[in-house]
Amino acid sequence: MPTHAGYADLYRFRQAAHALASPLESPTAVTDRLLAVQAQDFAAACWALGVRTADSSQADVIAALERGEIVRSWPMRGTLHFVPARELGWMLRVTTPRMITGLARRHRQLELEDDDFVRARDVVVAALTGGGSLGRTELMELWERKGIRTTGQRGYHLIYYLAQTGVICWGPPHRSQQSLVLLDEWAPDQRRLDGDEALGEFLLRYLAGHGPATLKDYVWWTKGTLAGAKAGLAIIRDRVTSFDLDGITYWMTAELADSTTPRAARPRSLHVLPGFDEYLLGYQDRSPVLAPEFADRVVPGGNGIFKPLIVSKGRIAGTWRRAANGTRVAIEAQPFMPLSTAEQSGFAAGVAAYGRFLGLRGEVA
C-alpha cells in the first residue's frame, strides 16, 4: 500500500469495505462486516443490509432478526443500530460508562433516581424471564400499573438505560417494529472482551467495515476518546495500514488493503442507498464523499433527517424519494447534477433491486 493515495483509492477501498463493490452472502454477514448499522429508521436500516447482500429480501432481514443473529440496540451515540448479537455485550462495556454519565443531568430533570431504574429493571426481568417479549407500548403500560411513571420521556429513558446497561434489547419483530427481550436470553452466546482488547477489536471492526477512515472519524462514531482510539490502535497496529491524503492520515485493515486491487475491486458505478446509511453517517468528516455545497440537499436545514442517497463513483450524487402503490414502488431521482446515460441505467438497476428486496416492482418515476 503506498504511503500516499488519491480520492479514487479512498472511494474504491470504502466501497469494498462497505460491501458495495462485492455484496455479501447474507444480512448477518453484512452486520458482521460493518459491526454497527444505524437503525433508528427500521425500514431504511433493513435496506442498508439488503443493498449489501446478494439477492436478499426484506424477509431475509426479518428472519435474521427472528433468529437472534442481529439485534437492535443503542451501542453508541444514543442512536439505535443493528449489531451482531454476540458482539453487543462487549461493545456496551466500552461505551456505556460515558453514555450514562452524559445523561445524568437529563435524568435529574426527569426526576429519575437510582431506585426508579432498579424497580424498572426488576419489573422487566420478572415479566420477560423465560423467553417473554413485550412491545414498547405494552412495557410502558406495565410500568404504569406497577407505579413507575413513564410520562415526559421517562419511559424512553428507562428503556434506553436498561438497553445501555445490557439488560434488554430489541428482538423479534413486533407489528411494524420489534419487541423487547432480555439480552442474556435472546443472545446468550456473548463474546467476552475487556479492557484494551475490546478497544482494539472495536477499532479493527470499524476499519474493516468503514475504512479507510481517520481516528477522529472513529472517535465520533463511537463517541469515545482519542486516548481510547490510540490505545486500540496500539493493540492492532500489525493488522492495519495507513496512507496520507491531503495531509490527513487514513487507516484501514491490512486485509482490505491486500485484497482490494484496482482491477479486482472496481465498484459498480452507482448505488441506491437508504437514508441514514453508514456510507455517509459512519464518519465525522463527510466532505470526501459529499461536497459541502450539497450537504443541505441531504439534510435539509440540518434537521438530522438524512435523505436516501444516490452514490455515483464513490461520491454522493443526489437523493431519491419513493411512493409505494400496491404491487409497485416508484422511485424519483433528485440528482445534484443531471445524470449521465450510464448513471441513469445504474439508477434504474438500483431501483429494480430495491423493488425486488421489498417484493414489489421497482420503477423509475
Rank of each mutant, 00 (worst) to 15 (best):
L112K: 11
D116V: 10
Q153F: 12
A120I: 07
M140F: 15
D115V: 15
D122F: 11
E144V: 11
T150P: 00
F117I: 12
L110K: 01
T101L: 01
G147S: 15
I148V: 14
T150S: 08
G147I: 12
G132H: 09
L142D: 08
D115N: 14
W143P: 06
K146M: 13
T137L: 03
D122S: 13
I100Y: 00
Y156R: 07
T151G: 12
R149C: 11
L158I: 10
E141Y: 11
E111L: 13
T151S: 11
F117W: 12
G135V: 12
I159V: 14
T137V: 13
G147N: 14
L134D: 13
G152K: 05
K146G: 02
Q153N: 05
R98V: 03
G152L: 11
Y161P: 07
L103I: 01
Y156P: 00
E113V: 14
D116R: 10
E113S: 12
K146C: 14
L139K: 00
T101S: 02
T129A: 07
L162Q: 09
V123M: 07
G130W: 02
V123Q: 07
L110R: 05
L103H: 05
G147T: 12
R136L: 02
K146N: 04
G135D: 10
L128G: 00
D115Q: 14
L162A: 05
G102L: 01
G152T: 06
V118P: 08
L134R: 13
L158W: 05
E141V: 06
L162E: 00
V125C: 00
R136W: 03
G135H: 07
T150Q: 04
G152S: 10
R105P: 00
Q153H: 08
L162W: 04
R119Y: 13
E113P: 02
G155K: 02
L110W: 07
Y156M: 06
M140T: 03
D114V: 15
T151Q: 14
I159D: 03
H107T: 05
I148N: 04
V124L: 10
T101K: 00
D122N: 14
G152H: 10
A104F: 09
D114S: 15
G102Y: 01
A127P: 06
V124T: 08
T101G: 06
A104W: 06
D116G: 11
S133Y: 02
R98M: 03
F117M: 15
T151M: 04
V118W: 12
M140E: 04
S133R: 15
E113C: 08
A104V: 15
E138N: 13
G147K: 14
Y156G: 07
P97A: 09
Y161V: 01
L110I: 03
D116F: 09
R149L: 07
P97T: 09
E113Y: 13
M140V: 07
T151I: 13
L103E: 02
L134P: 00
R149D: 11
F117Y: 13
A120L: 06
G102H: 00
L110Q: 09
R106K: 09
R98C: 05
